[in-house]
Design a protein around this nucleic acid. Structure first.
Length: 492
RNA sequence: CGGGGCGUAGCGUAGCCCGGUUAUCGCGCCUGCUUUGGGAGCAGGAGGUCGCCAGUUCGAAUCUGGCCGCCCCGACCA
């Protein structure tokens, strides 16, 4: 093993870093807290983007692009939103550099080139977008306005982790305007459903849909909906959010419309987003101590073909056969890599594609050519199968579906085994420490209790699940009456 | 910003306590030959501001002071 991966048991954080770095997803960069997304990692993101974008368009949304910079006066217009993000904003104050007279070859900020108004680098785009929507919306006929943008944002985090939390990250943010509150709530719920469907069907990542408590709510929102996933170390990870913003931003930016009776009212808003954090979620949810495990529907390479030959004369024969198989699979929409690299031995390639999480590997050697077979190996179960070339494409398609399903079921079984009810404080604390995962417990509904629990245990309320069954009980901490259980967990 | 660890070739490292020729080893890289069914072998070769700056010294990777950067854990957060 030339690329040693730290085991999960030994050091979970280091295991994660090893997979991201050695699996060629990303690199550290010269900028603190910012990463370089490498081609293999970026193609993962592109796969996610492509599917999500399709789903957004299928539900009537259009893409647009708004500026990276937000004038401070606009940024501060919606007070709660501004307050919430203020402490993590990067700010542009000058627009020019000049040669430093006291240090040859160095540059300095030109003190003469101070901006009259500072520009905030967007931590999110509500401000600039709602300032624009004001000009786009006059009548109910302009509604609903359903816009999405793919963009980068910057949040100056104290501590960063590859993909999970970086100072700059890529995401999509949807921003919609509606004539009624009910319609806006429906939109927020619809987008949450789309996120959940995407996570489960494509990323093979089971998620819980829920509503955030007041303290975890998006700054400026009335309600924040979320999908919560569980990682292999028992910590929860918020994988996507969707917000019902009420009329808060419409009021702040004076966005009114005339209804059919010519009465003026503020429009109703939503916003929703998922980010490159999903790449981190994918890595942490499925992978093992030998490397990444990619669900076929998101995998940049679904099938790799490795030729095995002795001597250059046989290489041509195998190249031909390999190309033939590759184009067969490609014609059915499977993404295939035929690895003809002559510098690496087959054993090296096997290990490398396992590290990279390619779902299926096909090895093809002289013995196979004689018998009309190939060796097929699944990454998820490591099962080795000798298969006839006849009808192979169909079998590969079925196998990819099986792998997708198996990865999902495995994650689901794990997740479900770690949703545990707790009915007293001692048990609650013990479960958090010994088992992890989601703890389903009663809560008295007050932010004070929520905060005290967090201070004592580092667990937060991840969400109140949608369609949560009502149940009489007593708060796990205060003992006060409660009507429903909520989900607690330690989280990323 | 606190606590811990680290910085020597693209990567991983030895040397540092106790200063002394040309800075160690492995992987990778280049050339050639042999190889190829689980991270190939042999031979030859290239590659270094020892994180940066100052100091001590005849002499510093090694000692002293300052600074910078990264990783892990915590506080903040998607």
């Amino acid at each position: 093993m030339s690329k040693e991966i730290t085991s999960r048991q030994q050091d979970y954080s280091q295991w994660y870093n090893d997979l991201v770095i050695k699996g060629n997803l990303a690199d550290y960069s010269a900028v603190r807290g910012c990463m370089v997304i490498k081609p293999y990692g970026f193609s993962l993101w592109e796969k996610m983007q492509a599917q999500l974008d399709r789903m957004f368009k299928d539900t009537g949304h259009e893409n647009a692009y708004f500026p990276l910079f937000v004038p401070k006066s606009l940024f501060e217009a919606e007070e709660k939103n501004a307050e919430g993000f203020a402490k993590e904003c990067a700010v542009v104050t000058h627009y020019r550099l000049i040669s430093d007279p006291s240090a040859k070859g160095r540059l300095m900020v030109d003190p003469e080139a101070k901006l009259e108004e500072e520009l905030i680098i967007r931590p999110t785009s509500e401000a600039i977008i709602w300032n624009t929507y004001k000009n786009w919306i006059q009548s109910y006929r302009d509604l609903p306005l359903l816009i999405n943008q793919w963009a980068n944002v910057v949040r100056w985090e104290m501590r960063t982790r590859l993909f999970l939390r970086t100072a700059e990250f890529l995401w999509q943010e949807g921003h919609t305007a509606h004539a009624t509150g009910e319609e806006a709530v429906k939109e927020a719920e619809l987008m949450l459903d789309i996120y959940a469907e995407f996570a489960e069907k494509y990323m093979a990542l089971p998620v819980i849909r829920g509503v955030k408590t007041e303290s975890e709510r998006f700054a400026g929102a009335i309600d924040t909906y979320c999908i919560e996933a569980l990682m292999q170390d028992g910590k929860a990870l918020q994988a996507g959010t969707s917000h019902f913003l009420g009329q808060n931003f419409a009021r702040a930016f004076d966005v009114k419309f005339s209804d059919k009776d010519n009465k003026l009212d503020y429009v109703w808003a939503t916003s929703w987003g998922v980010s490159t954090r999903l790449v981190g979620a994918l890595v942490m949810a499925h992978s093992d101590d030998d490397g990444l495990i990619m669900p076929p529907k998101i995998a940049p390479i679904q099938v790799v073909i490795v030729p095995i030959y002795k001597g250059n004369d046989k290489k041509d024969l195998l190249d031909g056969k390999g190309q033939e198989l590759a184009s067969q699979l490609k014609s059915r929409g499977i993404s295939v890599k035929f690895d003809q690299n002559d510098n690496a031995r087959p054993g090296w390639k096997f290990a490398e594609y396992e590290l990279k999480g390619v779902p299926l590997r096909i090895a093809m050697g002289l013995r196979d050519i004689e018998s009309g077979t190939v060796e097929v190996v699944r990454r998820d179960t490591r099962e080795k199968m000798v298969m006839s070339l006849e009808g192979l494409t169909e079998k590969i398609i079925t196998l990819l579906d099986n792998i997708q399903e198996n990865i999902y079921q495995k994650a689901l079984t794990y997740r479900d085994s770690r949703i545990t009810k707790a009915d007293n404080w001692a048990e609650f604390v013990r479960l958090l420490d010994e088992k992890g995962g989601f703890i389903s417990a009663h809560w008295d509904g007050t932010p004070e209790t929520e905060q005290t629990i967090q201070e004592k245990t580092k667990a937060t309320i991840r969400c109140i699940p949608l369609n949560n069954p009502l149940e009489e009980g007593n708060c796990i901490f205060s003992g006060k009456p409660s009507q429903q259980r909520v989900l607690f967990a330690r989280a990323y």
